[in-house]
Each structure stands twice: as C-alpha cells, then as structure tokens.
Amino acid sequence: NQESVVAAVLIPINTALTVGMMTTRVVSPTGIPAEDIPRLISMQVNQVVPMGTTLMPDMVKGYAP
C-alpha cells in the first residue's frame, strides 16, 4: 500500500508547505504520494487543510501529478 501525504497540523489557506506540516499515512482514497514531499515544500495550499486531512493534488497550487 502506498503512503499518501497527510496534514500533520492545521494548514491555513495560502500557506507555503514545510516538512513539519506534512506526515504520511496509508489512506483511502490515496492522495499525493509520500515521495512527492520534496516537491511540495514551498508550494501553497489553496484551501484550509485540517489536521489529518489527506492532501489531494487539487489542494496544492501548481502541483501536477
């Protein structure tokens, strides 16, 4: 099972992602793959992401799977 990126904290809208904001977990449905965390650093979320929420591609500005 592939791990997906999950919010480790509440991430406010338009916040640039940092390593500490993200964790990984096997979830269903799957979100952004864990191995993409290095690509996500400094990208901004386009909505509020509650802690424990799986990051989906459409939540991150400029992210393309």
Score class of each variant (00 low, 15 high):
N1K: 03
N1R: 02
N1M: 04
N1P: 15
Q2L: 13
Q2V: 11
E3F: 05
E3Q: 07
E3N: 06
E3H: 08
E3W: 05
E3Y: 12
S4G: 03
S4T: 05
V5I: 12
V5E: 00
V5F: 01
V6C: 04
V6K: 02
A7H: 00
A7I: 02
A7S: 14
A8C: 04
A8F: 09
V9L: 11
V9Q: 12
V9C: 03
L10W: 08
L10Y: 08
I11T: 00
I11P: 00
I11M: 06
P12F: 05
P12G: 10
P12V: 04
I13L: 13
I13P: 12
N14T: 06
T15I: 07
A16H: 14
L17S: 00
T18D: 15
V19D: 13
V19W: 12
V19C: 11
G20T: 15
G20Q: 11
G20M: 11
G20W: 13
G20D: 13
M21H: 13
M22F: 10
M22T: 03
T24E: 11
T24H: 09
R25Y: 08
V26C: 07
V26S: 14
V27T: 14
V27P: 01
V27N: 05
V27H: 04
V27I: 11
S28L: 07
S28G: 05
S28R: 02
P29A: 08
P29C: 04
G31R: 03
G31L: 02
G31E: 02
I32V: 05
I32G: 00
I32E: 01
I32K: 01
I32L: 04
P33R: 06
P33H: 10
P33G: 06
A34W: 04
A34L: 03
E35C: 05
E35Y: 07
E35V: 12
E35M: 05
E35G: 15
D36N: 14
D36P: 00
D36I: 08
D36H: 15
I37Y: 12
P38A: 11
R39Y: 13
R39N: 05
R39K: 10
L40W: 02
L40I: 14
Q44P: 09
Q44M: 11
V45G: 00
V45I: 12
V45S: 06
N46V: 04
N46Q: 11
Q47T: 07
Q47W: 05
Q47N: 11
V48S: 12
V48Q: 14
V48W: 09
P50R: 08
M51N: 09
M51T: 15
M51H: 14
M51W: 07
G52F: 09
G52K: 06
G52P: 01
T53R: 08
T53A: 14
T53W: 09
T54G: 02
T54S: 04
T54F: 03
L55W: 01
L55E: 01
M56C: 03
M56W: 04
P57E: 08
P57A: 11
D58T: 15
D58H: 10
D58G: 14
M59I: 04
M59G: 01
V60Q: 01
V60K: 01
V60Y: 02
V60P: 01
K61W: 07
K61R: 10
K61D: 14
G62H: 09
Y63P: 04
Y63G: 03
Y63N: 03
Y63L: 10
A64W: 06
A64R: 10
P65G: 11
P65T: 08
P65K: 03
